[in-house]
């Protein structure tokens, strides 16, 4: 399986990941190499195998419905690139 430069650009857009034009070919090549590794998986029959999402066969623990957090806006926004009036600012969102 090999990916084209066009495929890479599409995936990069889905991931909102800027990629230098001159690197697209190299990424396509690397990803194709990774996909070649995956071929080995398709050779194994897994028809009756349950997918495994977690190493531990455990159930989600539930938390009591209690407010435990206090307002820390100042501490959180000191590290923000751009804030005003307590809001995070981003380029205009068009709906």
């Amino acid at each position: 399986m090999s990916l084209t430069a066009d495929d890479v650009n599409k995936i990069a857009h889905l991931a909102r990941l800027g990629i230098d034009k001159q690197d697209v070919g190299a990424y396509a090549n690397d990803l194709s190499g990774m996909l070649d590794l995956m071929i080995r998986m398709s050779e194994v029959n897994t028809d009756h195998v349950e997918p495994m999402a977690h190493p531990m066969d455990q159930a989600q623990r539930l938390r009591a419905d209690e407010v435990t957090e206090i307002n820390q806006r100042e501490a959180f926004q000191v590290i923000a690139p751009q804030v005003e009036a307590g809001l995070y600012l981003v380029p205009k969102v068009i709906e």
């Binding site: 998986m41 398709s42 194994v44 897994t46 195998v49 997918p51 495994m52 999402a53």
Partner: peptide, 8 residues
């Protein structure tokens, strides 16, 4: 597929 392999 990878998750099933993970189980194996």
């Amino acid at each position: 597929k990878a998750q099933k392999i993970r189980r194996l």
